[in-house]
Amino acid sequence: MSRNTPRDKPAKATLPAGLRLRARGAASNAAGRFEPAQREAVADGWDLPGDDHLLRTETRVEVPRSALAWNASPDLPFDRSINPYRGCEHGCVYCYARPSHAWLNLSPGLDFETRLIARPGIGAVLSRELRAPGYRPAPIAIGTNTDPYQPVEASHRVTREVMEVLRDFNHPVAVTTRGVLVERDADILGPMGQAGLARVGISITTLDAGLARRMEPRAPSPDRRLQMIRHLTVAGCPVRVMVAPVIPGLTDDGLEEVMEAARDAGAVAASWILLRLPGEVEGLFRDWLAAHAPGRAAKVLARLAELHRGKTYDPGFGRRMRGQGVWSDLIGRRFDLARQRLGLALSQPPLRCDLFAPAPRAGDQLALF
């Protein structure tokens, strides 16, 4: 059974008896910050035998009213993005997007990676928005919140809808992912990349396969992500390796190793972002450290406090991506030296916007010239 607990006195969000987890990042399902109460599993006194059941992923469908999301953040190199899915089955415990599930009255914990929302039909909505008389093209970012090529894309193909529209409109796009299904769309990304219309960022946190599996339980292994870089490079799409997140005291010692392996696989550019722990992510990550890296927990948290002036996270513009102080400077310097030594670019040529043209529709009069 379960009981409600006042939100100002949060209880440990234990899981119901008999529920098994397999390859999940979070180990709890605490209510989001907007909920007035939490639910806590407690023993009801009935010791009845029963079979354990596995927590499985479920996907619901949302009818999209808009495709493009707009932002004016000074920390981001784009002003528009598309999110084909809400939630992400990869289950990366440190994912900064987890708090967004609280807006859906779902938990940023297990709900984020097991209760997903797909947005089929978004391609038609996007097509309508791109045809608007006042629309002016600029690169669209895909994968800035949750991964567009997570496993559910195999059956729902929402990202494929988006990519087909962008191809038909010759619209520039920058994709961020760690999902192998990006290789399926090499038939689109390759030609667009060669035309200066597309590029892909592949995020690799560490080359330690065991550590990656514990932190990112349903994401591809580090070696598999290197294969993705090779595949896209051969197809003609330029790839950036994103060493993200850099976790001080846990993964930062492998920074140069990741960059070199990615360069050897074909990456032409590199970037890095520090671990970010907004909202509910901090508690989930602390629990993960205690369970999976107890010998490193104190060091990681102390280093984060040094990077954020005594806090584990500072959301301020200009600070949230890099932190501040000597450790931030040291990571940045190591990154710059490795990047220069490996011949990796920091910035890539601007994506082309001059090729943009609305795709002809059935019944449209075609131009003669």
Score class of each variant (00 low, 15 high):
M1F: 14
A11R: 05
A13D: 08
R20N: 04
G25D: 06
D51P: 03
T57M: 07
V61L: 15
S73F: 11
D75G: 11
P77D: 12
G87R: 00
G87V: 05
L106C: 07
L110I: 05
E113D: 13
E113K: 03
T114Q: 12
R115S: 08
P120H: 11
G123P: 12
V125N: 07
L130R: 03
Y135A: 09
A138K: 15
I140W: 02
V152Q: 12
E153R: 08
R160M: 04
R160W: 11
T177F: 05
L181A: 10
L189D: 03
G190H: 03
G201I: 10
S203P: 07
L207E: 05
R214K: 14
E216M: 12
D223P: 06
V239A: 09
P245I: 06
P245D: 02
T251W: 07
M259E: 00
E260M: 06
A262R: 05
D264L: 13
A267R: 00
W272G: 04
W272Q: 03
W272I: 00
R276K: 11
L277T: 09
P278S: 02
P278R: 00
G279Q: 00
H292A: 06
H292R: 09
P294W: 05
A302W: 02
K311C: 12
T312P: 01
Y313P: 06
D314R: 05
R320Y: 02
Q324A: 15
D329A: 13
R334M: 07
Q348V: 14
F356C: 03
A359F: 01
A359C: 11
R361I: 09
R361S: 15
